[in-house]
Design a protein around this nucleic acid. Sequence first.
DNA 1: AATTGTATCAACCGCCTGAGA
DNA 2: TTCTCAGGCGGTTGATACAAT
Length: 314
Amino acid sequence: MGRPPCCSESNDLKKGPWTPEEDEVLKGYIQKHGHDSWRALPKRAGLNRCGKSCRLRWINYLNPDIKRGKFSEQEENLIINLHSSLGNKWSRIASQLPGRTDNEIKNYWNTHIRKKFLKAGIDPKTHKPIPNLGIFVNAISQLTASSSNLPFRVPTIMSPWTTIYDQLLHNILQIVNMNPLPNVTKSTILDSQCDFKKPDDQLLLDETINQYVMNPAEDWMKYVSNIVLEPQSECNSIDASLMGSYGDRIELSETFADCGNAIDNLFIDNQLPGLLSMAPGESVDKNIINIMNSPQSKEVHVGLDDYYDSISNV
DNA sequence: AATTGTATCAACCGCCTGAGA
DNA sequence: TTCTCAGGCGGTTGATACAAT
């Protein structure tokens, strides 16, 4: 049985943001008496807070030694260097940066440095380059340029990206699972959506299916701005998040990256997975995914329901 | 101007560690 | 050696500010 947190001793203790009055009381008390016992401090100082809360408020905010303002380039470089050898040991990193707290450094890492790393294609955990899914995307994209050579069916009535994109997803699922998957079918992908940066006027309305489609001659993949895969309850091992645009390195979520060495091997070796045929009418009951959208970009929605309805009407 | 999405960071939670009885 | 406890730590959350639509 674990030890209960000190703050659970009394439900009457105040939580949440500190008021200026509380700050004054705590600051005044510590400057006068010090903080030999955090547990006893709030009672002695007349604060209705737990000792931990007082300690945190002092260490992270009230302590006059704290340096305020933006991190300098030197500080940032030092954090990166220390993190590469220490990992997420924020307090040890903070001990090397006078005036900076572990909490401040941790927040700065998570909101600034981590993003810089990912943008540069570097894994912030390992400080090493991450596998480049762009190679995969590029290869798939190039396949669209000569559809006669495609090893799978591309119905002419649909925008080419729908089929290729579903094929891409299928192969990602295959990689992640490391097991043979059944063919992609209507029930595999419940809702297929894709983001495009491409302006409205570049999209063509195909009245036969009442959908906006891309010009098949276009290199449509370069307009894809965001792809997020989210597993539904019946998925067994898929949790993938892919973000980026054509030509960029693409961020892999930790869970996705953790899905197995097969991913690393695949992309490091610049190999493509085997493409699977798409066979309408077959059904599967797992590996259901949704593809979410980025609100900033133009959303084009061509669901697989439309897809199969359209080809069944031909 | 209103609404919605995103970024930031203060604060909390709960586990870990080490000192002392 | 074992147990208890305070302080420390890292992960996470949620309120708020800001930006975009």
